[in-house]
């Protein structure tokens, strides 16, 4: 496990916004769902669309392409389009206000 600074201030991601970052070669999407931050792999497990800009509601992120919804807490999908969960990463707040992510 490596704690990695995203260099993004938590205050720069507004509610329901997504921000994509590349860390250690991984494309990761940071999401603000009602003030809680989540980080998931930025690639839909249905047909590999990028999830950036997907709509967030109630802790669920919807893929912009075909609408699969993923539970940001667990990465688990709803519905029939895919049964494969998104990889999730732990997010924490650094002392300087930046978001940091636990990479494997």
């Amino acid at each position: 496990m490596a704690t990695t600074d995203t260099l993004i201030l938590a205050t720069d991601i507004t509610n329901s916004q997504t921000v994509a970052v590349t860390l250690d070669g991984k494309n990761i999407l940071i999401c603000n769902a009602n003030g809680d931050f989540y980080a998931v792999a930025n690639l839909c497990t249905h047909q590999r669309a990028v999830l950036t800009g997907g709509r967030i509601r109630n802790c669920f992120l919807a893929c912009p392409l075909h609408g699969v919804r993923f539970d940001l807490r667990t990465g688990k999908p709803l519905g029939e389009l895919t049964r494969v969960p998104l990889k999730t990463y732990d997010v924490s707040l650094a002392d300087n206000g930046n978001l940091q992510i636990e990479l494997d």
Binding site: H46, Q47, R55, R57, A62, P64, L65, H66, G67, V68, R69, L78, G79, E80, L81
Partner: peptide, 14 residues
Amino acid sequence: LRDCDGHAEEFVCP
């Protein structure tokens, strides 16, 4: 066209 509830800018058949 759509498998579940959600949001779409357009309806793209999967």
